[in-house]
Amino acid sequence: MKGLIYSESAQRAKELMSFLKDQMELDLALPEAEAVQASSNGASRVYAIYGDVYEPFAVASAVVSVFDGHDYLFVPATNFGRQVAPIAAQLIKAEMESEIFYFRPEQDGAIVRRYFYGGKTLLEEKTGAKVFTVMTGLAQPAQQGSPSEVIRVEAKGGLSRVLQISGKQKASADITKADIIVSVGRGLGKKEGLELVRQLASVLGAEVAGSRPVCSDLHWLDEDRQVGLTGKRVRPRVYVALGISGQIQHIVGMRDSKVVIAVNKDKTAPIFQECDYGIVGDIYEVVPKLIEKLK
């Protein structure tokens, strides 16, 4: 059995490799600029995509052009990957399943698991699909391994023009590896409140993460610190949720944490159903006291 992984980043390609490596032989397809970083991690082949690498049609066509000889195509569920995968599935006339976090191939199809109803329920399915988007942050990146044969592939035939790429600040740390996380929600009220949150994080030796409004909307934190359905899945020993209401799309990302502590001024907030220890109170009153006690 042979799988092809497409990812726009070497880091996520390597994560997906470790997630799948016990199940099948793997090849990678990724932009040429990322190819070097993933060319000695045990993939048989690395397809280095050059040309129109930011255009979903061009990339899907390039990926499909090397799909022959593979049984499955896996794509990390990123906002670009989520566009490439459905187009690729249509191009090879295959069925597709989204956002899986479990995969087991069988004789006549694959067993997959994914959340449904926004994360409230868990579906286990047997599917004839060949194309999958896979939740990110499921495994640690693959270690150094045997070098891969590198083959260049051109991405062309895009339907839109790329005008500009603007970099976002890369986070200094990977929250999926964090042992302890202090996570903030809209309840923080103002960006300046992060000062207090960082003090608590420093006392605990924790990484700072956040809910979607804080990361993607208000941009108080970088987007790659977002926990949840469309963010990262984290599993720290301790997850401290400050001013997070606990909507299911957030819970999906932190459900596997060992101990969950919540601070929220609304005692009916759903986060109190999803925590081990909760304090009903204001962040600006509770956190300074906590810091004091822990020092």
């Binding site: 329920t121 868990l122 399915e125 004839g128 699909a129 459900r255 109190f272 159903q273 909760g278």
Partner: peptide, 21 residues
């Protein structure tokens, strides 16, 4: 579509839920 649902459940949350007012 060749899809067969094998299970559809609520993920169990086994939290202690000790809340301090």
């Amino acid at each position: 579509r060749t899809l067969q649902v094998l299970g559809h459940t609520f993920p169990m949350s086994q939290r202690k839920r000790i809340i301090f007012e």
